[in-house]
Every structure is written in structure tokens, then in C-alpha cells.
Design a protein around this nucleic acid. Sequence first.
DNA 1: GCAAAAGTGTTTAGCTTACACCCATGA
DNA 2: TCATGGGTGTAAGCTAAACACTTTTGC
Lengths: 253, 253
Amino acid sequence: MPYDPSAFPPFAVTVDLVVLTVRRHALCALVVRRGEQPYQGRWALPGGFVRGEEDLTAAAARELAEETGLCAHDPAEPGAGNGAHLEQLATYGDPKRDPRMRVVSVAHLVLAPDLPAPRAGGDANSARWAPVDELLDAEGGFERDAEGSAALAFDHARILADGVERARSKIEYSSLATAFCPPEFTVGELRRVYEAVWGVALDPRNFHRKVTGTPGFLVPAGGTTTRQGGRPAQLFRAGGATLLNPPMLRPEV
Amino acid sequence: MPYDPSAFPPFAVTVDLVVLTVRRHALCALVVRRGEQPYQGRWALPGGFVRGEEDLTAAAARELAEETGLCAHDPAEPGAGNGAHLEQLATYGDPKRDPRMRVVSVAHLVLAPDLPAPRAGGDANSARWAPVDELLDAEGGFERDAEGSAALAFDHARILADGVERARSKIEYSSLATAFCPPEFTVGELRRVYEAVWGVALDPRNFHRKVTGTPGFLVPAGGTTTRQGGRPAQLFRAGGATLLNPPMLRPEV
DNA sequence: GCAAAAGTGTTTAGCTTACACCCATGA
DNA sequence: TCATGGGTGTAAGCTAAACACTTTTGC
């Protein structure tokens, strides 16, 4: 194990963000348009360089705030802001992933409630929410840059796919789906989150029994709402329980 | 998103390895003794610098081969060697994690069958298998370097804890536990792997029904063995099924 | 009234659990 | 013969799935 500090190849270290939300009953990711080479004009995941004295999670939270104004909530540091859920996803370091130099990117996953509209450093047209199906389908017939739906830059399609898969599997056994909801939400809204993320239909009756029957998962917020039409629904907040046991079962596709 | 290749802080990128195995009915991790400052003489996870034109997974596999002679099997690249299971675990980049310089370490998790004895580049005395309970208990009353059981160097106790937790949870819903077994093994041997990793006792009858009743999980290898004493047991190989559905349930502790 | 969504009750099927019981070998 | 571990059978209890049914609003 030669550990010589003076002899190591220099790397650039970046963070890339897979920011997911549910809009119009579809799972969407935040993408920004690249203004420079390489992949100029293509859509990419937001991200940037890690600063000299900055932790990886801090860099991800900073980039998130810069791109969306969101204040991330790191589960490992309780009280550190409130808003979106943020966790490390995986690290991508193929020597050829950036044609300019050796870049190792630590990807992070962010789950956010539906937001008004992305703002990207003032330039409104250079950021958008795109359905992940659209972004990942573009991988097959890629390079077809019609108006916006082309393959993502770099290896970002792979990173996005990994992030989506993480989100899909993690809501099975955790209360993470509530991160897609506003602070107060109904059981039906939470169910529509699961349906959008998994792309399936769930039985409303059984879903209701499941989530309300798990102790500590949901706590009543007091009021009711009719924003979905029909009979008024009780409002809930996310409870303290972060693990869902037994898990929510994802139906076969 | 300023993406100026000429202006980025330089990082050193390393891989650290959490190599787990089951020995004498206990979950053990491979640790090596540090020969240099800082943390000289302390035990640490094996690892080293990523080379200039080397992928992260390749670096981890190379370090693994150098430290143990194991040929790792990356599930993402079928046919790439056979032997231990290797997957990326997480990345650790606290600015102060290495007092000398800014080091970002991409930790990898390796699950290996019980091996004869570790060899560390010829120096046999500088590497050993240590029960993870022992290594992680040392975190509380740390600095007590008796003969070997002291707190691990750097943030390696945290990395090890994350790797152990990953292994414990992943064998619930995947066939990963077979990576701890030799190519041919009995149902009882596989059950003892679960018992060692989880630190619980499982009902042999129900366990047998569960694993043999899941299609594709185990395939009969043909022979039998009496190496455990008692009635001869059927030998199996790991089947093609990598996901265990419904999952193996971990009893409450 | 009617449509729509919320919520409850009930039945059935599958799975886990716990444990009684038999099988095949070595000492 | 006995101890040891391998393997099968079975009944109780829990859960999810499917679906009939009632409740409460807006139009």
C-alpha cells in the first residue's frame, strides 16, 4: 500500500445532482442546458466542482441551492435546513467520461416536492423539469435533438437511471415518498406519488389501510382538504418512522 | 455552473476496500497494519491511489488482487473474473479525513468465501481477518492498542460500519449471501452465513424450505457431503436468480 | 341527483412461524 | 445405540389482494 502524498495523479472532483420530483402524475428530473463545449446545447444534470475546503454533501447542497433555491435536508444532520431529501448516490470515474480531463463525479440524489419552476442562475430558459421516461428513452435513439428531448450529456443518462432506480426501490421500505409531498398532504396525494414513481396503479383502499395502519408513519395534521375533489380528505404530516416494515409491495409490471 | 477545466482544486482519489468474509461463525473484515504516519501502527482498511488511466472499479479490483490474491467478480461485467463479489459502497470526502491533504476515497465492498490466510505483499504479519464486532466496538473505547484491537485509522470505522450494514441488508433480498460460500455448499452452510452476518439464530427447517422453494435461487450440484457431521447434505450452487422475492426476513434482535 | 374521491368491512389466498417428526450418517 | 445435523409435514396467525359498500363534498 504505497501511500506517498507527493506522487498521485491529480483529479478533478465534481458533484452531479439527480433532482427528482412528481409533476402532472409523472416522475420528472431537473436538467440544465449546457452553454459550453463539450456537449454544447445538450441537456445535462446540474452539478459543479467541489471546492477546496468543502465536504461532498455540502457541495451538493450548495449546487442545489444555486440551481433551484431549495434548501436540502441531509438526514444525517438533523436540523440542517428543511425541504428536499438529499443523499449520496454513487461515484462515476471512468477515465473517458469527460473528454477534457480526468473528472470523478460524486452523484447525489435529491427528492423534492413539486416546485413552481426552475431558475438557473437567472437564465430561466436553460433549466427545465423533464419526465424521466423521456430522458431515458432518448438514450436508445440518441442524438435526436428535436426541441429538447435528446440524450443527456456525458454519462448522465446512466447516472439518472441509477438515481431513478434508487428512488423506486427506496420508497418500498422507507418513508421517502413523503419527500415528494408538501409538508401537509393527503393519503391520496401520497398514493399518486407512488403511482407516478412506479408507473403502476395501486388500490386506493388497501393503500390507505397500509399507510395509516403503520404506526409513526403518518401523523394527522388536523385539517382536511378538498383540493382533489370529492369527499374532503384528512391532512397528514410525515411521522418520525423512516423505515416501513413490512414494506410497501411494488406490483409486477 | 462554471465549468472551467483550468481552475479546479486538485484532489487525490483513492479506493478503500471493505473485504468481508465469514470465519468461525463470525463476520470478519480484512485489515492491514499501517507502516507510516499518520496512524502508524494502527489497523486500517486496505486501499490505495487510483491510477491515471484506471476506472474506479478496476482500481478496487487491482488493490484486492494485490492484498489478497482474490480475483473479483464485478456483477456489472459478466465474465470478468470469478471469485469474490465486488460493488461500490460510498464515497468519503471530508476535507479533514486525511491530515496531509485532500483525499476523496471511493469505498468498495467485497464479499469473499473463507480464505486460507491473508497475504499482504509478502509481509504476512501486517494483514489479518478481524471480527467486525471487535473492530467496531473499539470505536467506543478507542485508542486502546492492546495487541491489535484498536480503533481503525482515518474514518475507516465509519466506512466499515457502512459496508457491514450494506451487507446485512442486502442479503435480505438478494442471493448475495452465496458470495460468502465456496462454489458448492449445503443449505446448512448458507444458513450459518446468514446467522453469522446477522448475529441471530434461524430455524433450520424453515430456512431450508425458504431457499429451496425459491425458483432459481439454488441449483443442485449433484453430490452430497458430510463435512458438517450428521446426515449427508445435498450440495448446491448459486442459481441465476439474484433477487429474492419475497425477501428473507431478519428476526428482531 | 350524480360524479368523484375518501374511507371501512370482509373474504380469500399465500406466507411465516413454531414445532412435531422422520432420515442418514459417524462414533 | 446415541448424538448430530438434514429434511418433511402441519396447524395457527398474520398480511396482502380483491372488491362490495358507505360517506362527503362540488356541480
